[in-house]
């Protein structure tokens, strides 16, 4: 196996440009599972875990290489809360938000927040330079993205109008270290509520009809909240698998979203 350790983004991109089959390695928490299950034997790996630029954060961006343990103390409340539920302490110390974005699992814990705040994904290639991809165009299917073969995810670009009120919750059948059966972020910005859910569709989704319903009222009544929850349950597209059932996921999506709206109101 060929291993290239990149110390900056340019080196990483040059290595990727030279060999587009090469894989980026940051925390390894997804890639190594595939290796250990003998599903995968990488031939060429570009180590980016020491690229300082990828670890930078500011009010406008979060570097792709920032690990979850750092995000646990983020000033963005929902991000901090969700970071604390990613895997285990060991996973959080290694895994990065960029890895979560690149893997694009429907259950990716960070993705509902990205969708709720309407963040963009910054991707860069040596030949094509930088592009900012709205999240909805980035995630295209179950573990599928619009990332080009020569590109890397470098940062999450945050909106200027970051919703200050935001809440996260995630359902799993265990109190820690669990893959979500439904996860949800509700953010309340100047334009109203935004509701994003994970594990209920091939990608993370927003529920525009439910949002519209909610945002049509200044202070939603109990009845409106019930209708909102019912709309969320209708709007999501979950499946039945070994982790849960479609019916439960619909129900739970509604309950969870409703609770988070109430938390935003209080």
């Amino acid at each position: 196996m060929n291993f290239t350790r990149a110390t900056n983004i340019d080196e990483a991109l040059a290595a990727k440009n030279a060999d587009t089959d090469a894989e980026f390695l940051a925390g390894g928490t997804d890639l190594m599972v595939e290796v250990n299950l003998a599903h995968h034997r990488p031939k060429s790996v570009i180590g980016i875990e020491n690229v300082a630029e990828l670890k930078e954060t500011s009010t406008s961006r979060i570097g792709a290489g920032v690990t979850w343990d750092h995000l646990e103390s983020s000033s963005h409340q929902a991000l901090a809360h969700l970071a604390r539920t990613v895997g285990s302490p060991q996973i959080r110390a290694a895994g990065t938000i960029g890895g979560n974005i690149g893997t694009a699992s429907p259950a990716g814990d960070g993705l509902p927040w990205i969708a709720a705040i309407d963040a963009k994904i910054e991707v860069v290639s040596q030949s094509r330079g930088k592009r900012l991809v709205p999240w909805a165009q980035f995630f295209t299917g179950v573990k599928r993205t619009s990332l080009g073969a020569d590109e890397m995810v470098t940062a999450l670009v945050l909106p200027a109008d970051m919703p200050q009120i935001q809440h996260f919750a995630k359902i799993g059948v265990r109190s820690a270290m669990v893959i979500s059966t439904v996860s949800c972020v509700v953010a309340r910005g100047t334009d109203g509520f935004r509701v994003a859910l994970g594990s209920v569709a091939p990608t993370v989704i927003r529920v525009p009809r439910a949002e519209q319903l909610l945002n049509s009222e200044t202070r939603p009544s109990e009845a409106a909240l019930d209708e909102f929850a019912a709309t969320v349950a209708k709007e999501v597209q979950p499946i039945t698998d070994h982790r849960s059932t479609e019916a439960y996921r619909r129900h739970a999506a509604g309950v969870l979203a409703r609770r988070l709206v109430v938390r935003c109101l209080n």
Partner: peptide, 13 residues
């Protein structure tokens, strides 16, 4: 100084 699962650390890195 980081606690990790060594099963998820690629030795090449």
């Amino acid at each position: 100084d980081t606690l990790v699962c060594s099963c998820l650390v690629m030795v090449g890195s």
